[in-house]
Amino acid sequence: MPAVEEIQEFLPNLDCGRCGLTCAEFAGFLLTRELAPEDCPVLHEPDYAGFIEALHELLGQPTVQAAAGMQIDLEKCIGCGICVAMCEFHLGNCADARLGKGPRPQDKVIFHIVNGGAVVVHQERCTRLLQAAEKCSKCAEYCPTKAIVLF
């Protein structure tokens, strides 16, 4: 996941409040995908040409990723982290997730919990994408709110 400073490099940093927030808060919502770069009106001005595209690249284009096989409904998700603990990939790659703890920032994960909701950061690590799709569906299977849809 990109760091906050990296995101802020591509924001106007004017704190003009036109998005209803400060730029730093806006960056936070970009990280949780609750807002998209297009939601900053200032970025649509000619001075900032190319910034929106740069932000999409930085954020890893969640919509494109989701099309590859996994969608998390943040309206339903309660951030319990069962999916993080049960994920087949995490089992072999993240000792903390095995134990039921949250992954450390440096751990290799597919998704983790941010601000109370599950956020995908590296869809490409998912077993379903590497092998046949029917190989794994653990995250969705154990999600108590049925927030994860695999396709």
């Binding site: 936070g28 990280l31 601000n115």
Partner: peptide, 27 residues
């Protein structure tokens, strides 16, 4: 005890590993 928090200008704007209940406190 595993919450990773990012504070910007003395305000919390990101907390990793917290559930929605925790978010109701932190955010």
């Amino acid at each position: 005890d595993d919450i990773d928090i990012t504070v910007v200008d003395d305000r919390i704007y990101q907390a990793a590993n917290i559930c929605l209940w925790g978010a109701s406190k932190f955010l």
